[in-house]
Design a protein around this nucleic acid. Structure first.
Length: 572
RNA sequence: GGGCCUGUAGCUCAAUGGUUAGAGCAGGGCGCUCAUAACGCCUUGGUUGGGGGUUCGAGUCCCUCCGGGCCUACCA
């Protein structure tokens, strides 16, 4: 039995995520976690909410709530939606947890001991009206280059010129509009990534099997210009992990917090501790996943994320781990995804464009979304969601190919043999042929799942479903029943066993429908078909079953048109 | 500006430098009647974005041009 540590990039707290966020990390991570569990491996699947940073504070202010209250509420909302999407996290933690505070401070202390933290005095924009320092992009003004009057402090969106906030003509706060700004001296901690550049580069170079998307982004950051730059890891904010050197105060850093991207990946570790703490287990229970010297030597660690997160997971988080000088587990494989676009443009959280997770569940069951999103996962390049494609894919694959297969076999059996697995008959050549075809495809499916080739796995699974319809068509139990009822009984018995087999194989993609299928077969046997022949005889003659409700109701043209217009505009 | 990714059938996508570029959907035909008018079989459809080059052989490698996208370090 192998041990799989699996993490999904942690979603930011400031709102409900859209389908593009979902398919970029949480959903494929769930697919992989469910598959590894189904194969009997020990899995620790971790996700959390990323709760710190300026946008969280602003979202809380906009909602008229204290930031800790806002985050607690949004965490509960996101946890509920994740649950309803079937995301099978072992722990959905919070980066604001006490466990993460302690671990983040611990790592900072170790890095300081190793001389990998630099204290830097710098000048930043302070807004009196907002009572806070403003990140560059929260300052607006007129571009000195092109005259665009809504240029941001980091870059002008109109002429794309890189800017410094002090370059802007008539700078103002993007939050309040106030021009009462002041350049203030402030001291911050920098992670000396440059000192770890060679180790990081050698490590990345050793990952020859990683997606090009992952390694090319990492190499760009390592080699661009003067090479990997040091990164500021503290901010002048109220909400966050207070800067401490381990458990000791950090002189001159009072009132400052660690930067969200320093503490967010550490939350993967902290969330594991949150889980074992709430179970009342000793620290050894989480450390065996994360400490090479305490049992994590046999752990395979896989991270899932959208491409925007790659630099933090290939460079700064590994720099934190390596630089600590302690034997923490480093990631073994990073599966990164491109973006999902919506109907000719981008999904946008800030503009409310596209379909958000709560809205998706309001109109259709999770499995519809899971199937479409996973079978169209943006692995090789950006992918596009259109309602026409969604309707066509879901109706054909789920309703016609799989759902109808379950219907036709259960209803035929009920009318001819009753609601139990029929007795009699022996397998012939056709059944042996089906067994061989299934075995070949199931082994291919396993290969794609293990390799996280999501689209190819979906294609293979669909082909496995099709084999059932092909068999039924050629076996034609409705015809053989008239001349050789024993033979028809055997064919139907095989068909019923296919339903159970399909439930097991399909569960990582469509867990809710798989549950319904197995429940209809009155079975609790989720064992993986290492022997397909054995799997096809698991339901013995005489075993009772039920005819399930229609598994997948088709999407009508009227519904599609309704949703098309409903989600065209902007979310409230 | 720089870096990376990408362009293959009407649509969504495959194809370690190696037969005649393949699937699914859509379109056309036939069959079946158990089933959610579902299923099965057959079939139409390509100058692989344009041009040049390397090679016995290029969708694949190189150059160039055109289109789409992402990143570019203080959003996260």
């Amino acid at each position: 039995m192998a041990r799989h540590l699996i993490t999904s990039a942690i979603p930011y707290i400031n709102g409900i995520k859209h389908l593009g966020n979902l398919v970029g990390s949480q959903l494929p991570a769930d697919l992989f976690a469910r598959y590894q569990r189904a194969r009997g491996h020990e899995v620790m699947f971790i996700c959390a909410t990323d709760e710190h940073g300026t946008p969280a504070e602003l979202a809380a202010a906009k909602a008229g709530k204290p930031v800790d209250v806002f985050c607690a509420e949004m965490h509960a909302v996101q946890a509920d939606i994740a649950d309803r999407f079937g995301l099978s996290f072992d722990k959905f933690g919070r980066s604001s947890s006490p466990q993460n505070h302690a671990l983040t401070q611990h790592f900072a202390g170790k890095l300081a001991e190793k001389g990998l933290i630099a204290e830097v005095s710098e000048r930043q924009m302070y807004s009196h009206a907002d009572g806070r320092f403003l990140p560059d992009r929260y300052i607006e003004g007129t571009c000195p280059n092109c005259g665009y009057d809504r240029a941001r402090g980091d870059q002008c969106e109109n002429c794309t010129k890189q800017l410094d906030p002090t370059d802007l003509i008539e700078p103002r706060s993007a939050i309040s509009g106030s021009t009462d700004l002041e350049v203030r001296e402030t001291k911050h901690l920098y992670l000396r990534q440059s000192a770890l550049k060679d180790r990081l580069a050698a490590w990345i170079d050793s990952k020859t099997d990683w997606p090009i998307l992952t390694t090319s982004i990492a190499k760009k950051w390592l080699n661009d210009g003067e090479g990997l730059q040091d990164r500021g890891i503290t901010r002048d904010l109220d909400w966050g992990v207070p800067v401490r050197k381990g458990t000791e105060p950090w002189p001159e850093m009072e009132g400052k917090v660690f930067y969200v991207w320093f503490d967010a990946p550490i939350e993967y570790i902290a969330a594991t501790k949150e889980l074992t703490d709430e179970r009342g287990e000793p620290d050894a229970a989480w450390r065996r996943w994360w400490r090479l010297d305490e049992g994590a030597g046999d752990v395979t660690y896989t991270q899932f994320m959208g491409k925007d997160n790659v630099p933090f997971h290939t460079l700064s988080f590994p720099a934190t781990i390596m630089g600590s000088g302690e034997p923490w587990k480093l990631v073994d494989y990073i599966k990164s995804f491109n973006y999902l676009n919506y109907d000719g443009g981008q999904f946008s959280t800030s503009q409310g464009r596209g379909v958000f997770m709560d809205q998706a569940l309001d109109i259709l069951p999770a499995d519809y979304w899971r199937w479409w999103l996973l079978s169209h996962a943006p692995e090789g390049s950006d992918a596009e969601f259109t309602w026409e494609n969604f309707q066509a894919t879901v109706n054909k694959d789920l309703a016609d190919v799989l759902g109808n297969f379950v219907s036709r076999i259960t209803k035929f059996c009920r009318s001819k043999f009753g609601e139990s697995v029929p007795t009699g008959g022996e397998w012939g050549e056709a059944e042996q042929g089906l067994l061989d075809a299934l075995t070949t495809r199931i082994r291919a499916y396993e290969g794609f799942m293990a390799a996280m080739e999501v689209r190819k796995a979906a294609t293979e699974l669909r082909a496995i479903w099709v084999l059932g319809n092909e068999y039924l068509q050629s076996a034609a139990p409705w015809a053989t029943f008239k001349t050789d009822p024993d033979r028809a009984a055997m064919q139907v018995r095989l068909g019923l066993n296919l339903i159970r087999l399909y439930a097991v194989l399909s569960a990582p993609f469509i867990p809710f429908a798989a549950d319904a299928m197995l429940a209809a077969m009155r079975s609790g046997d989720w064992s993986w078909p290492d022997s397909v022949a054995a799997a096809l005889t698991a339901l013995a003659p005489g075993h009772a079953f039920g005819v399930p409700e229609v598994l997948f109701v088709k999407i009508t043209d009227e519904q599609r048109e309704d949703w098309q217009s409903r989600f065209k505009g902007v979310r409230d």
